Amino acid sequence: MAGSKFRTGAATNGVTRVEIVTRGEARREYMPDEWARVLTEAAMPGARMLLVAQRYGISPSQVYRWRREAAGRPARQVSPRAPRFVPLLVDDGGMR
């Protein structure tokens, strides 16, 4: 292809394109009044979290997280559990 940045052919050994994705923009910070606006709308009767999140251009999980934090509950964390062991009984089939 003329003017193409990537070329295909035998020399590429089957790889036709390599794409490097980097974080394009800094993480956005929200002001308390933005939180309040989103949470107020999400708390309305019949409100759907997905639609509220889309309207403000944020992830629904962000709205759920803000709601947990506003209620004084910490974000959910998986607590590490010790591995559980099951006893293994081996039958030698009477080979003693």
Rank of each mutant, 00 (worst) to 15 (best):
A75F: 11
T8H: 02
A11K: 05
A82K: 00
R68P: 09
V90L: 13
A26R: 07
A10E: 12
Y30G: 09
R37L: 03
R37G: 07
E41P: 10
Q62H: 03
R7Q: 15
G72R: 10
D91I: 07
I20Y: 06
V21G: 10
V38R: 07
M49L: 08
W35I: 06
E69M: 15
T40K: 13
S4H: 10
V15F: 00
E41W: 00
M1A: 15
S79I: 08
P60H: 08
R81N: 00
P32H: 05
F6S: 13
I58R: 01
S4M: 06
P87H: 09
R23I: 07
M1R: 08
G24S: 14
V63C: 04
Y56M: 02
T12C: 13
V15P: 01
P80D: 00
A82F: 01
R84I: 00
P32V: 01
R27W: 11
L88Y: 10
G14N: 03
I58S: 08
L51P: 02
V21H: 12
E69L: 08
L88E: 13
L51I: 09
P83F: 01
A10T: 10
A42S: 15
P83R: 01
G72K: 13
G9S: 07
T40C: 02
D92I: 02
P87C: 03
P32G: 08
A42E: 05
D33I: 08
P83E: 11
I58N: 04
T12Q: 14
D33Q: 15
R67K: 15
Q62I: 03
E69Q: 13
G14A: 09
Y30W: 09
V15I: 09
N13T: 05
V86M: 07
R76P: 14
G3F: 05
R84D: 00
M44W: 06
R96F: 11
R55Q: 12
G72H: 14
L39G: 03
V52R: 14
S61I: 06
S59Y: 06
D92W: 15
G9L: 07
F85S: 05
P32I: 11
V21L: 10
W35K: 15
P74S: 13
